[in-house]
């Protein structure tokens, strides 16, 4: 179960989803889990352990940064995407898009606009 370095493609599902949720907002852990679940229609449901396991590694890899907790409002720490994190996410998204095009070329996917053109 040796974990690959967190910044190596392809990204694991939890890492990809966490980064994706943080693209335009800063969220704390619980909100992240809820956001991911809502965004994926319940398909990806992280446990707290998986989430924080991934966050720990992302923090260490400099892909996320933690914000100081706002004492008035929220006890829990929020996380923000770093530039490195954003770049990594973009590379993964491109990789996935390429992969999707290849699959579409074999007509594995339902017809999409991209395939029709």
């Amino acid at each position: 179960m040796a974990a690959p370095p967190v910044d190596q493609l392809p990204l694991s599902v939890p890492v990809f989803q966490i980064l994706l949720s943080l693209v335009n907002q800063d969220l704390h852990g619980y909100a992240l889990i809820q956001d991911i679940e809502a965004r994926t229609d319940g398909e990806v449901r992280l446990t707290a352990s998986t989430l924080y396991g991934a966050i720990a590694r992302l923090l260490e890899g400099g892909l996320l940064e933690e914000l100081d907790p706002d004492p008035d409002h929220e006890r829990r720490r929020c996380y923000r995407l770093t530039r490195g994190g954003r770049r990594l996410l973009e590379r993964e998204a491109e990789r996935l898009a390429r992969a999707t095009r290849w699959a579409a070329a074999k007509r594995l996917l339902p017809q999409t606009r991209g395939a029709r053109s």
Binding site: G29, I33, A48, L59
Partner: peptide
């Protein structure tokens, strides 16, 4: 890691 995320992990587990 535990020092960093342990407390949040625990409160998130409770919430979930």
């Amino acid at each position: 890691h535990r020092d960093r995320v342990g407390a949040d992990l625990a409160s998130t587990v409770d919430a979930l």
